[in-house]
Design a protein around this nucleic acid. Structure first.
Lengths: 209, 209, 209, 209
DNA sequence: CATGAATGAGCTTTCATTCAT
DNA sequence: GATGAATGAAAGCTCATTCAT
């Protein structure tokens, strides 16, 4: 996150202050954008929501695009934290338990952060290629988390998976979908039931008999 | 589609021409919106992409909102056609073959129409409730197509499915995802391989042993 | 009216048709303009109110301004008719009766044609000088009607008037005002009472004692 | 005036500046509207006449309607000041002198402020009812000024008036007319002569013999 | 450091007018 | 003679961005 921050223009030499002001801006922007979309969120609104004046806001960011860039990074930062958390969580567990825990954590993340998920899917199209790249990358990393668990399970003989990639994709996708189609799923499922049922389905698919 | 068209203002008494010009407009709008989003697509761009002047465009539609309305209906109309097509296709087939054919057709649709899929997902958030409803409804109908096949298979004893709803959701979702994450999937799959592998996975999951 | 008509462009060589079509247009325009003002009345509305197509309307008039020009002339034409009517009416009457009849007829005209009066006052400001001139002229003629009656009365010794011009102006103005401030006058007067009271006041002012 | 100002949107927190900029805008708008009417006066013209850019103008007002609203209030504010001034002026004078002074002041006002008078008459028709009400009210108050003087004169036996209401209406109207028909009156009168002659006429009408 | 006044391009929409059919 | 499709300038309004204070 730091690395990217430095490419955004600021007129202030005081790094600490820059970081603090940007935190204000990003959090306000993220809330507003998630609620009404990028295009309906004006700089004026972001400024007033972050309790700064417009002029001051422009001391710490260069353009409107930068705010979006920073907001995406903020979203990705959270996914990266999630990836790390799941990896740590699963390290010591045997594959079957690891998979169950990973799915559980992953789904709950999307439940709590659906705004972020929706935001990334919705706005991907309007990102410039340089913004799109890190999104794709983080998505890949998420994917790898499940690949690793599945591979480990195959090695230890607990799982038998024909197409590991596809299973991982399905898991990742069905988490995103819980956020994207929440209005659809909530007709038939609670979060807990969804997790249970989905986990059971995946395990049925890959368990050795 | 006809019914909705008639609620949109036009200054032309020539119905045939109205339909033709609106087709031009909708298709141009559809392409542009899918590419850059509703908010970044201006009337000027739609006009020039549909090779009309702004003034002339406003002979055939009432407001910018109308274009979006018509574009959504255009997207939904195609999904409705797909649903009908798959239903017809599967009517005479036995469940296993029906499912294979349905998945095949469904995935190929998303491959060819990814713009429509992306459009609907991206813009759902900015729809007014009255526009959102038909989108949800069509999605439900798509879902039902697979539910029906799965149920029939269970009845004839070819399939054994724990959670029919979830399997149907997974199929529907993984079709959408082929459009939404095409940049991701295309790293590992061709369309044909994706269809084969996904079909195999679903069959493995539900086939009676 | 004829004279002015000929300065307005037409593509038709058929004078009878031109006159008929213009009558259609003017009457529709006059109604619409009186109701919502010149600027809020579009050519499209005038065309459809006169049951013609836009293209056809432009066969018989040159520009939007022409319609306004013709509508004013239509209004002035009515005032000219009124002037003639009052003159004819008063010719044979002795001054006192003539004045009473003239005021009566004049006030009743404004009562029935308040839209025309309001129209002329409101839109005078937006007229080009060449349009303003005939309006001023007609107003002068109206003025002269009362001047003539008053003078005759002075000559015959029935009236004694210090400033004939001012009395005439007062009469003309208080007729216009019945149209312009109808919301004000109608609080205290009916038309009949207004006529009676006003006539009585004027006679009190100018009668020889 | 203050009260209404505060309901109009501004982006500026500097009240003094808001007031100053609005004064610029209102005065420019007032001049333009009086000259060519509300509908022919564009925001672009108002902006350039008040020597501001469009964007800046919209820092201080919310909509075009607001400008009209403020301009009307500016006009009414001046009439209200006039009413107060005449009332103060006449308080200590005996009726005959009071009436002379009131007419004098009233006519001179219309002479100096004919733009305001024309503005109010011309645009009344396009006002919304909520804007029309205060105009009518102020007009009534003006009326009452003369009613009061006339009544006082009747009570003290200086005047004998058959229809006080009508005489007051005539005075008020003939002031308005000096503004509305200035092109007509100026052919025969200077302001001073008009005042003298009109005053004389009214006094002749109401004086006890 | 912070402020917010000012800019002006761009948005959606309307409408008088022309001209090929 | 009649039609109406097409044009494009101009309307009211918004908003990212700059810069003097």
């Amino acid at each position: 996150m730091k690395a990217e921050l430095s490419t955004v223009r600021t007129f202030s030499p005081n790094n600490g202050l820059v970081e603090e002001r940007r935190r204000q801006i990003i959090q306000a922007a993220f809330r507003l954008i998630a609620a009404r979309g990028i295009q309906k969120t004006s700089i004026r609104e972001i400024a007033s929501a972050s309790e700064m004046t417009i002029g001051n806001l422009y001391h710490y960011i260069g353009t409107r695009e930068d705010i979006i860039f920073l907001a995406i990074n903020y979203g990705l930062y959270q996914v990266r934290k999630l990836i790390k958390e799941i990896n740590d969580l699963c390290e010591t567990l045997e594959p079957r338990e690891a998979l169950k825990a990973a799915i559980d954590r992953y789904m709950r993340y999307h439940h709590a952060n659906w705004e972020g998920t929706v935001f990334l899917y919705k706005e991907m199209g309007s990102f410039s290629p340089s913004l799109r790249l890190p999104v794709i990358e983080v998505n890949s990393h998420m994917h790898d988390v499940f690949i690793r668990i599945l591979k480990k399970g195959c090695k230890t003989g607990v799982f038998a998976v024909t197409d590991i990639d596809l299973v991982a994709s399905t898991i990742v996708s069905m988490g995103d979908m819980w956020a994207l189609k929440r209005w659809q799923f909530k007709k038939n499922y609670t979060l807990d039931r969804y997790i249970d049922s989905f986990t059971e389905m995946i395990l049925a698919l890959i368990s050795c008999t």
